[in-house]
């Protein structure tokens, strides 16, 4: 089946993302959906580098690189300037990594969303501080190795549920998306573009370098994250209306974990525990979406 995604390209070759960079794929899709009337605010993240050094830019839309924690605020300012200039057409987008979203930039994001600033905030999530060399963030999942959670100190805390945090703001539109589901992703970006007020997109963007896996699996692993319920695809309107976009086939999380070096230390017991956590989160999501677990297809069971 051919995927119907806009042909127009807003990203150039020659950017300096790692081979198989999920964040680069995410950017391509998002810009295809948004088109040229877009301004990108990029706080510190891998994309600060990927986008190219002076005097280059890999994107064919304006880009404003900003400080790490400022994604929500700088976008607010750009939006305000465009508003006062009477430009209602241009979409202002903050393009931040998980560190700049979940951690250091959370305050500015929360502030902007509380003010219902008219912009799209995209978090491309690669689950750690990758640009600085794989340090744990509050987005790093339970079980993961990072350079700051080495050896037996692997992260034993859950990943922050950022979408639910945004939903608690009653944000007009929040959605998860994955580079492995381009049509869903593009549809959500287009939908977000049409909504007024704050919009949040949480895009799962694999990182072969930081996840210690072969680069060719970048998309496959992102797909598996969805198939295993580790990263469900759903959207929430006005903080209350949940829609689950993908009912998984009930793959075991183990399949996802065993492909990545960052999880290689985990025992069967650990994996079982993680499976329970994933099941629990999924059932919680189903309840919020008002779907009875039976109707939603298989919830993964451990044999």
């Amino acid at each position: 089946m051919e995927l119907s995604v806009q042909d127009r390209e807003y990203m150039c070759s020659g950017h300096v993302g790692c081979p198989g960079c999920g964040a680069a794929i995410a950017m391509r899709f998002v810009l295809k959906a948004l088109g040229e009337k877009t301004m990108m605010i990029v706080p510190a993240c891998c994309w600060s580098i990927i986008a190219g050094p002076y005097p280059q830019s890999t994107l064919k839309v304006p880009v404003l690189h900003t400080a790490f924690e400022t994604g929500g605020a700088v976008a607010s300012g750009v939006r305000a300037a465009l508003d006062i200039k009477g430009d209602r057409e241009t979409t202002v987008v903050t393009w931040a990594g998980d560190g700049g979203t979940f951690d250091i930039g959370f305050q500015a994001l929360s502030g902007a969303v509380e003010r219902n600033e008219d912009f799209i905030y995209v978090c491309y999530d690669n689950e750690a501080y990758m640009n600085t060399g794989v340090q744990r963030s509050s987005s790093t999942p339970y079980g993961a190795w990072t350079t700051t959670t080495p050896g037996q100190e692997w992260k034993k805390l859950r990943k922050k549920n950022i979408v639910e945090a945004l939903v608690a703001h009653r944000i007009p539109y929040a959605a998860t998306a994955s580079i492995a589901f381009p049509e869903d992703l593009v549809r959500k970006v287009k939908k977000a573009k049409a909504v007024k007020g704050s919009r949040f997109l949480h895009i799962y963007a694999s990182c072969p370098t930081g996840w210690r896996m072969p680069s060719e699996l970048a998309v496959k692993i992102a797909r598996m994250a969805v198939q295993t319920n580790i990263f469900p695809l759903y959207e929430v309107e006005n903080g209350v209306r949940y829609t689950i976009n993908y009912m998984p086939k009930g793959y075991l999380v183990r399949e996802y974990f065993k492909l990545q070096g960052r999880f290689k230390h985990l025992s069967e017991a650990d994996l079982e525990q993680i499976q329970q956590m994933v099941n629990e989160d999924w059932e919680l999501l189903l309840r919020k979406a008002g779907v009875s677990p039976g109707a939603a297809g298989p919830v993964t069971k451990i044999d």
Binding site: T66, S76, A80, D83
Partner: peptide, 28 residues
């Protein structure tokens, strides 16, 4: 005064917002 007034959540964001606005070419 015909201005957008952003009631931000910190001084840090106050300056950040102005950086955004000034980058978009307005007086801040």
């Amino acid at each position: 005064l015909n201005a957008k007034f952003l009631r931000v959540e910190s001084e840090h964001s106050a300056m950040a917002a102005l950086i955004g606005a000034a980058s978009a070419g307005v007086r801040t």
